[in-house]
Amino acid sequence: MLQQFGFTQYESQVYQSLITVDQPLDATSIVKRSKVPRSKVYEVLHRMIEKGIILETTIEKKRLYTALPIDSMVEKLKADFEMNVQQLRNTKVKETPVDDRVWTLKDDQSIQAFMKDLLENAETSIFLSGWADDIAKYLPIVEGKYRSGIPVNIHVIGEIKSAIPTISTLVPDIEHETLERSRILIVDNMEMLFAGIEDEKWQAIRTQSRPLVKFFTEFFYHDVALTEITEKYRDTVMRDKDIREVLLKLRY
C-alpha cells in the first residue's frame, strides 16, 4: 500500500493491518495481521511513530497502536512531497561548461519533463518539431516565450491553433499515419533533444555538441522545406506514384 511512496514493505504491511481494523491493536495482534516477524515489529513501529503515520497509547501498561486516518495520510504525503520538491528546487546547481557528449534518456514522462525544462530556460531561440497532440502540450510555454520576444519556429504534423506565425503545418494523408512519431527541440542554437519511438517506447538523445545541434537545425529546415513543397505542389506530387512513394518514406 505504501511502498510506492517510499515506505518499506514491513511499514506498508503494518499500516494496512491497522487501517483495515476499527480498533487499536497491540504488537501481538499486529504481528498476526501484518505477518511482520515478531523480532522486527517493534523496530518497525518505532520508525512509523517517528514518521508520524501511526499513533500509540498506553492503557493499563499495555501499548496500543492505531493508524493515521487515510485522509490525513494523503495530506501528509502531499505535504512531504511538496517540501521535498521545494528542497530540490533550492539545490544549488553548479555552472558547467558546454557538454558535447551525447546523452540518452528513456521514459516518455522524463523526456517531456526535460523538454519543458529546456523550453522554460530558452533565452534566444526555439526550434520545435513534432505531432500536433505533442506540440500542444508545450504551446503555453512556447507562446509565452514568443510574446517575450524570443524567435520561435515550429514544424507540426497535424493542425494546431496558435498566434505564432512561424508554424509550418503538414496535414498528413492516410499514408503518413505509418510514420513513426518523433520530437525535435533546439534551444538557443546550443542544445538539442531528439526523441523517437523504438520498440514501442520513447527514447531520446540530448547534446550540446555544436555539429549535432547544427545538423538537427538543418534537419528541421529540411522538414519545413518538404512540407512547403508538398503543400504547394500536392496535386502534382501526389499524382506521381514514384514521387509520392519517395516523399512518404522521408521523415517529416
Score class of each variant (00 low, 15 high):
E75V: 08
E50K: 06
R147A: 14
L18W: 07
V74R: 01
A163F: 12
F7Q: 02
H46T: 07
V246A: 15
I160D: 07
T8F: 09
F219G: 06
R63L: 05
R38N: 10
G6P: 00
I174M: 08
E175L: 04
E175D: 07
V21M: 10
I53H: 03
E191N: 10
S125H: 09
K94E: 15
R33C: 03
M1R: 04
R101V: 08
E75D: 15
K40F: 14
T236D: 13
E228L: 13
K62H: 13
L18S: 05
L77Y: 03
I54Q: 03
Q23A: 13
Q4H: 09
R38D: 09
E60Q: 12
R210S: 09
F219W: 13
Y15I: 03
R239P: 01
Q203P: 00
R47H: 05
I111E: 03
G130R: 00
T124N: 13
Y146C: 04
M115L: 11
V213S: 04
P37E: 07
T166A: 11
L77P: 03
F114D: 09
V152G: 04
E245Q: 11
F5M: 06
R206P: 03
G196W: 11
L64V: 00
I154P: 09
H155A: 09
E60G: 07
M238D: 06
S129P: 04
Y138P: 00
I126K: 00
N189V: 00
K137Y: 09
S209N: 15
V44S: 02
A113Q: 08
K92R: 13
N153H: 14
K201C: 11
L2T: 05
R210E: 11
Q86P: 01
D133M: 04
A122G: 07
D133K: 07
K94N: 13
E228A: 10
G6M: 01
L170H: 13
F127G: 00
E198D: 12
I197M: 14
A163N: 12
L45C: 05
V156T: 15
E43L: 10
K78W: 08
A27P: 01
V31T: 12
K51G: 03
H176F: 14
R251H: 12
Q86L: 14
L128D: 04
A122K: 03
E191R: 15
M1H: 06
G149C: 08
V171P: 01
T236Q: 13
L77T: 03
T227H: 05
T104A: 10
P97W: 01
V142C: 02
E218H: 08
V213E: 02
L139G: 03
T8S: 15
T66C: 11
D26C: 10
I70T: 10
R183V: 12
K35E: 08
M48A: 05
G6C: 01
A132K: 01
K40M: 15
I186S: 03
F215A: 13
E159D: 11
I174G: 02
I49Q: 12
F127A: 06
T104D: 06
Y252T: 05
P172N: 00
P165F: 09
E43F: 12
E50P: 00
R206M: 11
K116E: 14
L179T: 07
N121S: 13
P151K: 02
L45W: 02
S34I: 01
K137A: 07
Y65G: 00
L128A: 04
I160Q: 07
T124D: 15
S29W: 09
V156C: 15
L179S: 10
